[in-house]
């Protein structure tokens, strides 16, 4: 028998075990890293029918988010603007730009511009924009620094665990509702100042973000 297996074969079972352990570890690490919205959603930046630049309109011109997303304070759904909203200015500015042709066409025909939706919660999530904005959750908390984006990309994971980070500790995020559309604003007192003011707001306005299932799912 001693001729059939070399002596090194004695180590083989251990080596196989180590290899299987390593492979399992790598697969687990891969799933943890990739099978999450942090990978699958963040960075999604589709090409839109009109290359609208938020960096120009919201950043450089300083238009308030609500100039276009005008229902955000009143409705659960934050609207994509009507073509007429674009035409408020673009009936005089860049009136013959070929890039704006879909907007002009939509304004004339009444058919919507086929924008691609970037932030899309699952259909069993009942997210309400107005209630968040009214209680001082800024646009930037969920959408990132839109006012600096030439092309909008999905900046935050919008996963349930991520929602709960704020629902558990709203004082880290809530601000004066007058400042919700000021995407560059940070509390001048830094994290400590934010925490102190946030705690006051949470107390004064009786903010109790739901952590029960039916708060967001029904």
């Amino acid at each position: 028998m001693s001729n059939l297996f070399p002596k090194s074969a004695n180590k083989l079972p251990l080596q196989i075990l180590i290899f299987i352990g390593l492979t399992t570890g790598i697969v687990l690490a891969g799933v943890t890293y990739y099978a999450t919205p942090k990978y699958s959603r963040v960075g999604y930046a589709p090409t839109q029918p009109v290359p609208f630049s938020h960096a120009l309109h919201a950043g450089q011109l300083g238009l308030d988010c609500r100039y276009c997303h005008s229902n955000v304070e009143k409705s659960g759904h934050s609207n994509v603007p009507t073509a007429q909203t674009c035409m408020n200015c673009h009936n005089q500015i860049k009136t013959d730009s070929p890039l704006l042709a879909p907007v002009r066409e939509s304004y004339a025909s009444g058919n919507p511009v086929p924008w691609s939706k970037i932030h899309q919660a699952p259909d069993y999530v009942y997210f309400n924009h107005s209630v968040h904005v009214a209680r001082g959750v800024s646009c930037v908390s969920c959408h990132g620094q839109i006012n600096e984006m030439e092309v909008v990309h999905h900046a935050k994971p919008l996963s349930m665990g991520w929602c709960l980070e704020c629902h558990r500790e709203p004082e880290k995020f809530v601000r004066d509702p007058k400042l919700v559309t000021n995407l560059d604003w940070k509390h001048p007192g830094g994290d400590a100042g934010q925490l102190e003011q946030g705690k006051k707001f949470v107390h004064d306005w009786n903010i109790q973000p739901p952590q029960s299932c039916s708060g967001c799912h029904r």
Binding site: A35, S40, Y44
Partner: peptide, 19 residues
């Protein structure tokens, strides 16, 4: 993670995501 992409986000467990 976070690299820009044109691909529609993959829904890994798409149970009732789109009703």
């Amino acid at each position: 993670r976070g690299s820009l992409s044109q691909r529609t986000p993959l829904e890994i467990f798409p149970d009732m995501d789109r009703q």
